[in-house]
Amino acid sequence: MLEIVRSGLWDTIQDRGRYGYRGIGVALSGAMDQEAFALANKLLENAPDAAALEVCQNGGVYLFNAPTYFVLCGPATEALLDDHSIAINTLYQAKKGSVLSVRRVVNGVYAYVAVKGGFDTDQKLKSRSMHPALYGVQKLKQGDQLPYRAYENLEIETDQPSISEVQQEPILEAIPGPEFHHLHPSIDFSALKFRLSDHNRMGYRLLPSVHLKRSTESIRSAAVFPGIVQLTPSGECIVLHRDAQVSGGYPRILIVTDESLNRLAQTKKGASLGMKWARGADL
């Protein structure tokens, strides 16, 4: 078990997501930064859908109750293993009684703590990704126990991966959405700037540098998914993220790529962002 001695700001268990149930209204969920999450499992030679602990901005203090190997993946993060600084994207051995303290994600927002074999927490609808509608709680709390299988004396080949630099001003790549025509035709997307005003696991609110509104039409409730950009009546753009609902009533003006969702997940509140057309965007 990994015991949560002190919980972080927003600790959850996440995997690749909950596929196959959107037809009954169940959100996709899954790790906010799928790239960092995938790297964690790759370094441990885990199955790609092994569940990891996702921490947001400020992590907590975690006690290993059994020996294992673990990695911390994501942007540069301040963390200690038994009072010694550890690096990201690097394999470490934890003994029974080791304490991991994840202090602060410095160069981004989300980081992942993964153990050999993954966390064996409760599965709901074939996934371990925590969603309040299925688990009854928003996040992990002090005292929670995350089961995992004990490992000692493993041989894992450790290639130091190349780390993609966090872009100073992230540029999101998008294709037009079904209601793209709701926008003014003169708008040049690549010249627009956005400010990230707030965010959570469901969505990111972006304030555009120019007024985007064109029509007051709302659409009938229609299918949405992570990556859809909705235009609200007040002219804000909501980029739907991993925990997005399956339907929404605002015009779907753009769809950003999955890679862009990973970038966005690591963008801090207040930051400035750009937008450009994805390669192959059919205009």
Binding site: Y21, G23, I24, G25, V26, A27, H131, A133, L134, S221, Q245, V246, S247
Partner: peptide, 11 residues
Amino acid sequence: EGFGFLPGFFY
């Protein structure tokens, strides 16, 4: 008539 909004929420 349809599903949406929340898991298992139908219209």
